[in-house]
Write a protein that binds this DNA or RNA. Structure first.
Lengths: 227, 227
DNA sequence: GTAAAAACCTACCAGCCGGTAGGATTCTAA
DNA sequence: TTAGAATCCTACCGGCTGGTAGGTTTTTAC
């Protein structure tokens, strides 16, 4: 084959695309050897691409290009496109799950525990993986993988319902339809990826605070509260 | 071409697939002539298919088969797949918009007007078009069409914000961050298509009532309210 | 230095699906 | 009955993209 342009010369100076995903791959001429780190980079890059263009409008070639690599390299780290989406799902759900687990060992009133979870929840959905958490379609996963993701989501839902029930018991949360309330809370938070863009006025934490305030106080003015 | 089986015999008895979309096409052997009705049927059928399988996992052949028709027939009623999605968008948004407009001529307290809108909103997203309203991706539309849809969505958002502001003035709604509150309300409702299935215990109206109750009262128990 | 393993690439395939050309059928109008 | 419009179908194309075969380069181990 005829002489093709030296690729290294281009690569070294092409890491200026915001995400430095490619820097994980090579530093200078040296080919790095950390499988786990690179695999994570693949997933993270995929998540970002999915968020921007959607799952079906993101080709593996595009993800590869973003990483300054070719398509088969991706298949070296992940079985197929479906698994790529799956990994994005779990990576996104993980922080929410751990937030729930953290609160299990707490003795604070349930309302406060709930608020803490909601705050972490907001952070999670505002992340790069937020799109996968919320907008990705289960039909794009095979049955077993879809079931796994669904199980995780159910765990989250049940966790929130439990906090609500606990709140009813300890009196920190007013009586309400647990199922509907959980859906309403999750829904409000899950909508964040639709409108939130980083480098916005408000941080994810601030959004969470605003939401928590609304959920706590309600829209109807409370009687006699002027200090 | 060799003798292919008489199609009419099959067609007459094949309308048992839940949706009677095909009955709009023929009645007996007679080929009906109402363009508008059939076009609506195409859009409605597409909406249902999108909801069940997602936009990209729904082929035009599949939609055509559902209508007991061939693919080119669809192109007789709509320019392309993109426009099909666009029509689903607007068809879904319309009832929400008209709900907002209806309330403009009302003199009730803003909180009640808001609740009325939210109720209609819930009905809309629980419909066949709910998926398109909420889950369809704007990237699947061309720039001009996407802009149109976005404009409608903005109108809805602004309408809700206005109601909140009006409520602040007339005292029927407690002071709050208007922007965040609007996002939270819309988000909670927009999440309905993710979990709601028809023939469920609760109707869309009941869901709306539960949500409205939550938004109004808030989670924190209100003082002195045992009648 | 050398063999084996790890990492990556070039080149290619094949299926799916959106879209179309052009013709057949069926209706309406007169 | 017949012209012309409306409706629908058969048959086909071509591009995009997920996925793979098989070889090449780089790194590690000894």
């Amino acid at each position: 084959m005829a002489a093709r342009p030296a690729r290294s010369r281009i690569a070294t100076a092409a890491v200026a695309n915001g995400a430095d995903s490619a820097s994980v791959w090579r530093e200078g001429r040296k080919r790095l050897r950390d499988h786990a780190v690179k695999r994570d980079a693949v997933i993270q890059t995929a998540a970002r691409a999915f968020r921007e263009n959607g799952f079906h409008n993101t080709s593996l070639d595009a993800i590869a290009a973003q990483l300054e690599v070719t398509k088969p390299t991706i298949y070296y780290y992940v079985a197929n496109k479906e698994q790529l989406l799956f990994e994005c799902f779990v990576a996104g759900l993980q922080p929410i799950l751990s937030a729930l687990r953290d609160q299990k060992s707490s003795t604070a009133p349930a309302r406060e525990r709930l608020n803490a979870v909601l705050r972490q929840y907001a952070q999670a959905v505002a992340s790069d993986f937020g799109w996968c958490l919320v907008r990705a379609e289960h039909q794009d996963l095979s049955a077993p993988m879809s079931a796994q993701v669904r199980a995780l989501k159910v765990e989250i839902d049940q966790g929130i319902r439990r906090l609500l029930k606990d709140g009813h018991k300890d009196g920190s949360i007013a009586p309400c339809d647990v199922k509907m309330t959980a859906f309403a809370l999750a829904g409000a938070l899950n909508w964040i990826p639709h409108w939130y863009r980083e480098k916005q006025a408000l941080s994810a934490a601030q959004i969470a605070d605003a939401f928590v305030a609304l959920f706590e106080e309600g829209l109807r003015p409370r009687a006699a509260r002027r200090s």
